[in-house]
Design a binder for these strands. Structure first.
Lengths: 124, 124
DNA sequence: ATATCAGTACTAAATCAAATAATACACATA
DNA sequence: TATGTGTATTATTTGATTTAGTACTGATAT
């Protein structure tokens, strides 16, 4: 389910963070649902436990998940309203839009691209 | 004019490439205009000449600039129609749009963000 | 109680891309 | 001929990422 690209320049822990954010914000992972343990997920993904730990720590600091020592890590409530997550997504869209404008892609074409994405089947 | 962020995770040579692409595609750098020499730009930006060389080499391979040994490097013609550059910008916009959708940002809000960017004063 | 699984913390080492350093060569031009 | 240009090469340094290994505390089921 969680697939990683080991050739990407994006660090593994970042990829992992983004996947979990998407799964949480889209409702595939329900609020208070238990996430795989650090060790299990590391084993499944064939990465070091420290890498998963870093992702989980970041996500907890950002309010996406919460961890309870001895019990596990869980999806926070209200991720869909997590302002930090939303702001990151908005900022990325603005940056990409600036890139399009600077190469003289027309506004209408840019808007159509965004609409097209929203019409796509959702695959996470 | 060309400012770099040495703290960014984006490599310097990538930042440099993107700046030059923007300047060229937006017309600030005219076709066939001479770019700073590898050594001069490196000195101005306080980076190693090899870093500038890498950026220039990439840009030449991508058709954004052309270099003449002994003479210098120059902006190619028709950057605004360079399909590779355009496709990169489109791809980035689509990826960002997917990010917005996955965190349940509404299509109308995403479209409004893009429009807002296009209304901004252009600063490169 | 105790074995097991959970998160957490810490230090050390390995890895790898990016960037720097230092030369050297060939071409163009004033 | 001197200077400035792109290009090429090798070596080194740097720094973030990842791995490796160990250890601690808390929760839970048997």
């Amino acid at each position: 389910m969680l697939s990683l690209d080991f050739t990407s320049r994006e660090p593994i822990y970042e990829q992992l963070k983004n996947k979990i954010i998407k799964l949480s914000a889209s409702g595939v992972l329900a609020p208070n649902e238990k996430l795989p343990s650090v060790r299990n997920l590391a084993k499944e993904l064939l990465v070091n436990p420290n890498t998963v730990q870093k992702a989980y720590q970041d996500l907890e600091r950002e309010g996406v998940i919460y961890s309870v020592p001895g019990r596990g890590s869980f999806v926070s409530e209200g991720i869909g309203e997590n302002e930090r997550v939303l702001e990151n997504a908005r900022r990325a869209l603005s940056a990409a839009a600036r890139g399009c404008r600077s190469v003289r892609i027309r506004l209408e074409d840019a808007l159509e691209l965004v609409k097209k994405v929203y019409r796509e089947d959702e695959r996470i």
